[in-house]
């Protein structure tokens, strides 16, 4: 029964969507305290390479690798964050973009460790490892009427979904806490926030390194979903793509980032039937939407309009 509904291709795209949601949030969090970071691709690479190397060379379980990868990216976020957060706006964007490139060039040149531009092969794939584990405790996919590859992708999808929901829950809760309000006060006016007794440096570094942590987490997961990474996966192109997720969907609200990541990952796949023209359509869509709605598709006004609509409907009833 279940087997008829599970298509590895769709699950794979869903998995990429979930990873992209994490990446979009990693830009959204620093942005919520007024910092435009373009270093996500770099932090993502740090997380991916750390986790991949640990699991390849030390046979660590994947979840340890992923956690360490994310933590290393987060620590790098703190180290980089402290000096570079003196910068703001465009200057910070350029500095973080530079950081991302530096990280990529290190991956290219540190050949003894990263195998240079050839990339790392043979990274344990999350789903396949889980399949092995399940078999060891005597569970066969066939018991649920699933084929092996269906089981593999279903497991990957479920794990990613749990992680993404957990992350969204965390960011959402944080937003409505003292920390989140401090973030938005810094975004509105740094000077005013400081005079109200908010420790600007602390909160800025906090939001920046949270973004780095999330990007690292996404990168580590990416490595274990793909099974192969190379420096070209973490280029400048990727940094811009991640930024577009957030800006396109709406950078003021978290659901904007989520929407942007889902929509922009799905579109190139849905448009596969027009083959060569799909990226042209993708580009035209971006131009039109940015011209019409520079704040992104979803913003606070639109959301509150939805809410009012719902409420008034409820009232009539």
């Amino acid at each position: 029964m279940l087997a008829d509904f599970i298509n590895p291709y769709h699950l794979q795209i869903a998995s990429f969507i979930l990873i992209n949601i994490l990446l979009a949030i990693s830009v959204y969090v620093p942005l919520s305290s007024g910092q435009l970071s373009l270093g996500s691709a770099g932090f993502m690479g740090v997380g991916a390479y750390t986790s991949a190397l640990l699991t390849i060379h030390f046979d660590l379980p994947i979840f340890v690798g992923v956690l360490v990868g994310a933590a290393v990216a987060g620590c790098l976020g703190i180290i980089i964050g402290i000096p570079s957060l003196r910068l703001s706006g465009v200057y910070l964007a350029i500095a973080t973009l530079g950081l991302g490139e530096v990280i990529r060039v290190i991956f290219v040149n540190w050949e003894s460790l990263t195998k240079g531009s050839i990339g790392l092969t043979g990274i344990p794939q999350m789903g396949r490892e889980l399949l092995k584990l399940a078999r060891n405790v005597g569970i066969e996919p066939a018991m649920f009427g699933l084929r092996n590859n269906q089981f593999v992708y279903l497991m990957v999808f479920v794990i990613l979904l749990i992680l993404v929901i957990g992350t969204i829950w965390f960011v959402f809760r944080q937003q409505n806490s003292r920390i989140g309000r401090s973030f938005s006060s810094i975004q509105m006016d740094e000077k005013a926030a400081e005079s109200m007794g908010i420790n600007i440096t602390y909160f800025k570094v906090l939001s920046f390194s949270q973004g780095a942590f999330l990007a690292g987490l996404a990168g580590a997961l990416f490595a274990h979903v793909m099974g192969y990474i190379s420096p070209s996966d973490f280029s400048y192109h990727r940094a811009v793509e991640i930024l577009i997720f957030t800006v396109f969907g709406g950078s003021e609200v978290i659901i904007g980032s989520i929407f942007g990541a889902i929509f922009l990952t799905l579109i190139p796949e849905v448009l596969r039937f027009v083959s060569e023209y799909r990226y042209i359509i993708y580009g035209i869509m971006l131009v039109i939407l940015m011209a019409v709605r520079p704040q992104g598709i979803l913003d606070i006004h639109l959301l509150s309009k939805f809410k009012r609509l719902k409420r008034s409907k409820g009232g009539v009833r």
Partner: peptide
Amino acid sequence: MKGIFQKSFTVMVVLMLFLLTAC
């Protein structure tokens, strides 16, 4: 705000289900 939060999940879940079932 809680409503938005729930809504975001609803949207996501619906999209994911759509993906799954759009076999």
